[in-house]
Design a protein around this nucleic acid. Structure first.
Lengths: 215, 215
DNA sequence: AAAATAAATTGATAAATGTCAATTTTTGGA
DNA sequence: TCCAAAAATTGACATTTATCAATTTATTTT
């Protein structure tokens, strides 16, 4: 795993896009250096204090919560250079969700208090964050609007098309286990498996293990 | 309909909670005075420019989009003193959604450019907005996490309990038409009707028209 | 590499939800 | 108040999806 500098880690985060290098440098000074976590590491748990802002430099982090039956409900994934705050960096004092790496990941973090202090001094930073939150909101709105009415078949097609678009190729490896994917699409693993079979029969995809080719 | 002053309209908006009166006054100076719209008025359409921030003082506004079949997908409602920005006040230049009053409503608005200017000068305003967006995000996350796996029966119960909680009474009038409610819960009106019948039989509610009593 | 564990698939069945059509109820103007 | 239009309800049926159980395939671990 390539080890970026803390500066690059912060600079490449979408939430900080558009900030001048001076501000980035200020952010870097208050950020911890990168830490490496193996897949399966819990980064925070429901009930723990929200004391820092996470920036995922490399890898993938799954944010989820547990329902009454102890069932995992995946809320979203953090990948690329995503920044997590659980949308609660300012109001909430405790986490409501769980965050766990699903791949080996590099993560740097910024302490909440340091961040708030800097924010008060740097309005352009605030605007960037509002933008980033706005984008997350838009994503979620899209998801709930589209996935709400679609059949499992169409939800899967949507997901595959979205993923191909993001990755920029029609041939890719599923970035999730099929279990997690089923959870993400709010269907059972059995139904997912059947829809994959159906899509193969329909000639929409070719699938070998976790590799998918969209036709 | 009671006609608040523009000051009260702005001050009571959750997004601006915690701001000192000076900042509120500044906001008031750049906000338009209240406008009254009858139910069914379209406030903006997909494709039009995002040029102002809406503050709903009284009434209810439905924000939705149209899918390929021309079907309405309700994204969220703005009521009480909610502020809409379509989460795109800074990044997007055009609306992706439609907004329509579902009750006679009082709305005041703030021009985008004026608002951005003030924001640059007033860090505490930015923090408030980040909080408000964060809350919206949390709401949406809760919705998609909870509603994704629940049956239509349980989704309806959840909704009724949430609504009773918000209104602060176990006896209330549905703030939506049953059509819109079905859409909101991602089920058909027929299924909704059957679930209402079932809840009545189970003794969970008493229903007369749009009046609901939660037992 | 073999054993142990977890993940994925498949089949049979039950439960939930959507669809279509007919009717009743409600709502909003003339 | 009455009438027309929209909304809500109900029934019969088709479709989708979940559930449970059994098996096969992957993935870890020793």
């Amino acid at each position: 795993m390539k080890n970026h500098s803390a500066f690059e880690c912060v600079k490449s985060a979408p939430i900080f896009i558009g900030l001048d290098d001076d501000t980035i440098k200020k952010l870097t000074t208050i950020s911890t250096h990168q830490e490496q976590f193996p897949a399966g590491t819990t980064l925070y748990e429901a009930g723990s204090d929200v004391d820092r802002l996470l920036v995922v430099d490399q890898g993938r982090v799954k944010v989820y919560r547990l329902d009454e039956d102890g069932q995992e409900q995946i809320l979203y994934f953090l990948d690329g250079h995503a920044v997590d705050s659980e949308a609660a960096l300012f109001t909430e004092s405790t986490h409501h969700n769980f965050a766990e790496t699903v791949e080996d990941s590099l993560v740097c973090s910024i302490r909440k208090s340091d961040f708030q202090e800097l924010l008060e001094k740097t309005p352009s930073l605030a605007v960037s964050i509002i933008n980033a939150f706005g984008n997350r909101l838009t994503d979620l709105e899209n998801r709930s609007a589209r996935y709400g009415t679609l059949t499992s078949h169409d939800r899967l097609v949507q997901y595959l098309e979205d993923t191909a678009g993001k990755i920029g190729s029609h041939y890719f490896k599923l970035p999730l286990s099929k279990r997690d994917l089923a959870n993400w699409l709010s269907i059972t693993p059995e139904t997912l498996s059947r829809q994959f079979t159906k899509l193969s029969q329909e000639g929409v995809i070719e699938m070998t293990g976790r590799m998918i080719r969209l036709l």
